[in-house]
């Protein structure tokens, strides 16, 4: 296995007693090299988010293997998957995934609750806030921030633990054109610093800014 992320013949089937089986991913193969900035494009329901969830250690495939930074996540238990989410893969969501009633600082502290390395926590938080340009919003409740500011907080939280892989699920979906550009600039800066980034998007213009585009349709990766 060569890349920082490797998917081999990955199939994900969702099934419940009441509904028929849904094949979200069908024998998908993908290799992502370290330091790459990759975008995943496809229509709604094509399997983009499922792919991100599998790489992000939020779910396990029905068949096939997923390897993240040399570790096969398919064989991991819940505790090990949680450790991966805390120390290897960070996720930025379209709806930000923040705690609205809490301050920006409180939201950035959350990853440290589950980390064994809390040394220099405040310095790391300060540095993440400065990098994302929201150092002055430190004590402001998230609920009082604009969409762009919330996404910056989400990115700051994603980088505060210095995880090498950053996954973004439609990170600019709820933002205006100007803010989209600013968020994309942040991703480029992070990529220049060596982060591997996978961004799921509908927006082809945003996708064109990345180093590689992967298209996904009906659970199959069409080209990479």
């Amino acid at each position: 296995m060569g890349g920082i992320i490797e998917l081999k013949d990955v199939t994900k089937i969702y099934s419940t007693k009441d509904t028929p089986e849904i094949i979200a991913l069908n024998k998908a193969n993908l290799t992502v090299e370290e330091g790459e900035f990759l975008s995943v494009c496809g229509v709604s329901g094509s399997g983009k988010s499922t792919l991100l969830h599998l790489i992000g250690c939020l779910d396990k495939p029905t068949e096939g293997t997923v390897s993240v930074k040399g570790s096969v996540t398919t064989q991991m238990n819940e505790k090990e998957l949680a450790r991966m989410r805390n120390g290897t893969v960070s996720i930025v969501l379209q709806d930000f995934g923040l705690i609205p009633s809490r301050t920006v600082y409180d939201n950035l502290v959350v990853p440290f609750y589950f980390s064994s390395n809390r040394k220099g926590m405040n310095d790391k938080i300060k540095s993440a806030l400065e990098f994302t340009g929201i150092a002055d919003l430190n004590q402001r409740p998230v609920i009082k921030l604009s969409g762009g500011q919330k996404q910056r907080v989400a990115i700051a939280r994603a980088i505060v633990n210095d995880n090498p892989i950053l996954l973004a699920d439609e990170p600019t979906g709820q933002l205006d054109t100007q803010t989209k550009k600013q968020i994309m600039e942040l991703f480029h800066k992070l990529n220049e610093k060596g982060k591997t980034i996978i961004m799921v998007t509908h927006d082809i213009d945003m996708a064109k800014e990345t180093s590689r585009i992967v298209k996904i349709a009906d659970g199959s990766i069409m080209e990479s």
Binding site: L58, A82, N86, G97, I99, V110, Y113, S115
Partner: peptide, 16 residues
């Protein structure tokens, strides 16, 4: 619900 999801994203186990 949002908070539970945030905890999960940041490394909380299902038991926690």
């Amino acid at each position: 619900r949002n908070e539970f999801r945030t905890l999960r994203l940041c490394g909380a186990t299902p038991t926690y």
